[in-house]
Simulated assay, not measured.
Amino acid sequence: MSRRLLAEFLGSALLAAVVIGSGIAAQELSQDTGLQLLENSVATAFGLFALILMFGPVSGAHFNPVVSLVDAAFGGLPWRTAAFYVPAQILGCIAGAVLANAMFELPAVSISETDRSTGAHLLSEVVATAGLIVMIFSLVRSGRAAMAAAAVGAYIGAAYWFTSSTSFANPAITIGRVFSDTFAGIAPASVAPFVLAQLVGAGVAFALVRFLYPGLSPAEAEQVVVPQDTRR
């Protein structure tokens, strides 16, 4: 358990550092907002791919409370383990935000003032989260879990562009991004609506997976996001 929790903490921290750090770099290097978003999305997509490969064999590389909760709801992850994963992911994302700020010589903590709680943004979070969860569990159910690293990175990279919210799709990263008043930040007042929308998206995805893949077993669900080394 200690190895798994450390993997979730470190993976979440590095994910937040990638998302926020690449956003800061994009803001400093480019004046055009579209180019900034392109730079941020490409870095995030590649970063996710690498992090899932790095930590997947230890913890499954969830880095996302909704992934852990849906996995537990399917019977793959014990609820007790999910209860430990979620705070590790949240604390990791907060630590990653502080790290990103420090790497660019910004104040370690700067509370974001970027309000994102519009109706379009919240609908986007429902769609982005539902799509992410359905994609992950469809790969598991069809025996293609080994493709998850590339698929998750590709999906999030694309969702930066087809959603108005730029696809947070993750309560932990949503909380972490509060602590950096930069390109990737989100104001504290927007967090609760975003997290609620993400939970709704997870619920929609859970229902869709049960309908589309009714044979999902606990043994198969244990392979989320990627197959783990059971010797650990």
Rank of each mutant, 00 (worst) to 15 (best):
G215Q: 09
A16G: 03
P227N: 06
Y155I: 08
L139I: 06
A205D: 05
L6A: 11
G96I: 10
M1H: 08
V178G: 00
T129N: 09
V204T: 08
S124I: 03
S217L: 14
G203A: 14
M1G: 15
V86F: 02
L14C: 13
V58S: 09
A202P: 15
G119P: 04
E222K: 08
W79E: 03
L77C: 10
S138I: 12
M54K: 05
N64Y: 05
G76H: 05
G34E: 09
G76V: 11
A169E: 03
G201M: 04
P188T: 06
V195Q: 00
S117D: 11
E105F: 11
F55N: 12
A184S: 08
E39R: 11
V67C: 06
M147K: 10
V134R: 04
T163M: 08
V204A: 12
R3G: 13
A202Q: 06
L37H: 04
S12H: 01
A158Y: 10
G176T: 01
I20P: 04
E220Q: 14
F168Y: 06
S12R: 04
T166H: 02
A169R: 02
F137N: 07
Q36E: 10
V86R: 00
I136S: 07
L10P: 14
Q31D: 15
G131A: 07
A17H: 14
A13N: 14
L91W: 03
L122F: 07
Q223N: 10
A150T: 13
G11P: 13
A7D: 03
D229G: 11
A149T: 13
A169M: 04
A61E: 07
T81H: 03
R144I: 03
S138K: 06
G203K: 06
A184P: 02
A72I: 07
N40C: 13
